[in-house]
Design a protein around this nucleic acid. Structure first.
Lengths: 145, 145
DNA sequence: ATTCATGCAAAGTGTTTGCAGTATC
DNA sequence: GATACTGCAAACACTTTGCATGAAT
């Protein structure tokens, strides 16, 4: 919390009541909440809190490097006609998805069971930046997303 | 395509014009299309094609085991104040998705780079049957989905 | 003839944006 | 007092659903 407040100050960003309350709650979360969840938790403490503020605050935190985004807004489900086990490289920059075959990963044997869940197969999703997007980033000032 | 047609017939599902065209196109795709993309590609060939049909067809293919879904419908972006990764258990039976935290997986260090792709993080998707569905299967006749 | 798929349009989520007003620095 | 944030409501993107019609077996 202290670190977060400092990070905001450093950028000249006001520490509003809404942000303080959201931070207090968010930084304790261990369950990677969605915006809606955080809104539900904090709204009772901040009369009139708007969902938009929650969304905006969370994105600000990501920009400040105080939070990690899991997934991307506006990202659709994609489908793959290849059903054999294979893995994916998902670009955080442009959304491109490419396949990745790996003997090493294929050699792994997943656990049969995870907390009652009967595991049948697995696949790994690597997130990062594709070649094109890497090139773009290195030119301009580094800037998240 | 032949295999797909057979799979449909086996289940007594009609091979409609729309499905045929969608299949013809989809099975050739190597770029993990989203529903919208497939719609754009096929709509010119099937006058009056509806988006709903595309969505429904793709989900049918997943149920038949002819396609895999990358991502989950209705999934919101989640945020994490710890820079910690987490994984997913996806039930082939009911489609439920639950989170899975694993110290062992967290300890893994992904490669920095895969064929030019700058890896930032990864997450593992385990597919199988959740507790409820496992119970159902063991009682009733096995029934894929 | 039966069964299931389709199109349409409406509704449902999750998220973003423009704007006028307001709090923070 | 300047700047940036907030709430509101409307817009937006993606996806699902109900229903009457129509097509495949």
């Amino acid at each position: 919390m202290a670190g977060a407040a400092a990070a905001l100050r450093e950028r000249g960003l006001p520490l509003t009541v809404q942000r303080r309350r959201l931070l207090e709650r968010f930084l304790l979360c261990t369950d990677h909440p969605a915006a809606e969840t955080l809104y539900a938790d904090v709204a009772p403490l901040v009369p009139g809190l708007s969902r938009a503020t929650v969304y905006r605050t969370l994105e600000t935190l990501v920009e400040l490097g105080l939070a990690v985004r899991i997934g991307h807004p506006g990202w659709e489900v994609r489908y793959d006609p290849r059903i054999e086990r294979h893995h994916h490289l998902v670009c955080d920059g442009c959304g491109a998805v490419s396949d990745h075959e790996s003997a090493a990963l294929d050699a792994l044997r997943p656990p049969r069971r995870i907390a009652g869940f009967a595991v049948r197969d697995f696949s790994v999703q690597f997130r990062g930046l594709c070649v094109c997007c890497t090139r773009l980033r290195s030119k301009r000032a580094p800037h998240t997303r």
